[in-house]
Structure formats: structure tokens, C-alpha cells
Design a protein around this nucleic acid. Structure first.
Length: 278
DNA sequence: CGTAGACCCTGCGCGC
DNA sequence: TGCGCGCAGGGTCTAC
């Protein structure tokens, strides 16, 4: 479900309506997601603590609480984090349900259970295995600025293999998943199988520009809803209509008219235009 | 060190 | 209608 834009959209809706609210209880309904859910720590963190801020690092949501602890949520492939009224009927696969002082509930639902829910102290976060080796935020305006061609080129030094895998490797650049990797490469006119060792300086620049623009546009459109993605308030995203390569196998390229092709790379579908991606 | 493949898990749409 | 297959937005571990 979620790449950087979708996680960012959820973050923004939580930031708007969760900050200032207070957790008062949590119910853990399944023992394990991708990792065991830390019941005890989650319960302690839910006891009367106010939400100070909701942040994002890579595809992780960080719900900062009083007491210098954060509830950390990763949505995996099928995870959703949404609030509900208490009387709203429960759906299948609601693994964690928090109740809030406002009377609402925050529910984490994840049929495939590739997601993660944990609690970390502020001090633990940078050292934690989930965060320690993460790469560059492409849209981090405050700290490092937008990602540039020179950043990508440096990150790719010593690497081999196709550029699509490089873009999707969170140890290099975070937040770019299968959809936006395909879209950025289409926009930049770069073949997804091209080796990172064979990309000229100017093309790295173009790629960085397109990574930034596709992610930004997707955030503005509320993310990409293919199946069931929604913000924390339940609104779908509208970027799917702007996808120009992903999911368009056999359809004409919107730039050159060639048929969009689907191939498999590292077990994931790649969509690209054989006519204008080189 | 880096990369490719298997694997984690459930649901959906398709062809038969 | 029912069944099997392939596919799905992520990440980690293992074997090379």
C-alpha cells in the first residue's frame, strides 16, 4: 500500500487531528505482525499519554508521546492506520486498537501482517535496527534539502546492478517503492535495467528532479489509491489517475506511443516504455 | 562488500 | 459456483 507519499498523507491527517488528544487504552488483538507486538510496552505507552507530534522517517510513522517515547508504525504492504468512532463496526485484521480521550479509536488494520508496531524512546530511535541504516530522505527540506543528482551519484558509487533496485533500496534513498520508482524512471527517460555504473551526470540530475516531483505531486493528490489506501480520516488518494507507467502494461506510452511493457526485477513488476526509456 | 532470490501473509481477480 | 494461479504499494534473511 504505502510509499513515502501515502505514509506522508497519513502523517498529515494524524498531525491534524491526533495531536493534543490522549491515549487511554490499547487492545492488542494479534500477537505478531512482521515482528511480535510488544504488548506490555504498548500498554504502558497508551496509559494517559498525550500526543505531541506525528513525524515520519522513511516509511515509518512516529507518534511522539509525552515522556519521550514514540509509537512507531510501519504499514507494510496492506497496513492502514485510521480513526473511527467507537461504535463503528470492527473489520477483520484489526490487530491494534487504541482508544482516545476524545472518544475516538485509532485502529491499525493489516491483512497481510507485513507491518510493524512498536514503542521506542526518543533516544533509542536512531540506534534501533529499523532506523540505523536508513538512507537519505528525498524531500527533507529542513535538514538536507531536496535530493539532487550529485547525491544520487555519490550514493551509487561502488554499486552495480539496475537503477530501479538502487532507487528502491532504503539504505540509499528512503520512501521510493515500486510505483514511484517506475514513475520517476519513466519521467526521467531512464531504462529500469540500466546499470547505475552507466548513468551520466546529467541523467542523475534529471532522475533526482523526477524523484522529487513525482513524490511531491503524489502527496498533493493525497497519495495513490490502487485498492484500499486511505488517509487516517478515510479519504482516498487521487494520484492513481496520474500514473503514466505503473499498471499500464500494453497501453500506449503518453510520450512516444510505444506499448508500455511489464518485466520482473527482483520479484517485483517493473513497468516501462521500451521506446523512450534508455 | 554487494546483489538476487526465497520468504513472510492474506485477498483479489482471472481463466477454466 | 468453485478452484487454482498469479499478483499485490515492503522488508529481511540467506546463499552466492
Amino acid at each position: 500500500m504505502p510509499e513515502l507519499p501515502e505514509v506522508e498523507v497519513v502523517r498529515r491527517s494524524l498531525q491534524r487531528s491526533l495531536v493534543g488528544d490522549r491515549f487511554n487504552a490499547v487492545e492488542v488483538r494479534s500477537p505478531t505482525l512482521r515482528e511480535p507486538i510488544p504488548r506490555g510496552r504498548l500498554r504502558a505507552a497508551a496509559r494517559g499519554r498525550q500526543v505531541l507530534e506525528v513525524r515520519r522517517r522513511s516509511k515509518y510513522l512516529l507518534i511522539d508521546l509525552e515522556g519521550a517515547e514514540s509509537i512507531v508504525v510501519h504499514l507494510g504492504m496492506s497496513g492502514r492506520l485510521r480513526y473511527f468512532e467507537t461504535q463503528d463496526p470492527a473489520e477483520a485484521h484489526e490487530h491494534v486498537v487504541w482508544s482516545l480521550d476524545s472518544g475516538r479509536e485509532l485502529r491499525f488494520r493489516d491483512p497481510r501482517r507485513f507491518g510493524v508496531v512498536l514503542v521506542l524512546s526518543t533516544a533509542e530511535i536512531p540506534q534501533d535496527p529499523h532506523f540505523r541504516r536508513l538512507g537519505r530522505e528525498p524531500l527533507d527540506v529542513d535538514l538536507e534539502g531536496l535530493i539532487e543528482g550529485s547525491d544520487l551519484r555519490q550514493l551509487a558509487v561502488g554499486r552495480r546492478g539496475p537503477v530501479k533496485g538502487f532507487l528502491m533500496d532504503a539504505h540509499c534513498v528512503v520512501g521510493v517503492g515500486n510505483i514511484y520508482a517506475c514513475e520517476a524512471l519513466w519521467r526521467a527517460g531512464i531504462h529500469p535495467r540500466r546499470s547505475v555504473a552507466r548513468i551520466a551526470k546529467g541523467r542523475w540530475d534529471a532522475l533526482a528532479v523526477e524523484v522529487v516531483s513525482v513524490l511531491r505531486e503524489a502527496v498533493l493528490q493525497g497519495g495513490t489509491t490502487l485498492n484500499d489506501f486511505s488517509s487516517a480520516g478515510g479519504e482516498p488518494g487521487y494520484f492513481a489517475v496520474d500514473l503514466q507507467a505503473y499498471g499500464r502494461e500494453g497501453a500506449p506510452c503518453l510520450r512516444c506511443g510505444s506499448k508500455i511493457r511489464r518485466i520482473t526485477q527482483s520479484g517485483r513488476s517493473t513497468y516501462y516504455c521500451p521506446g523512450c526509456q534508455r
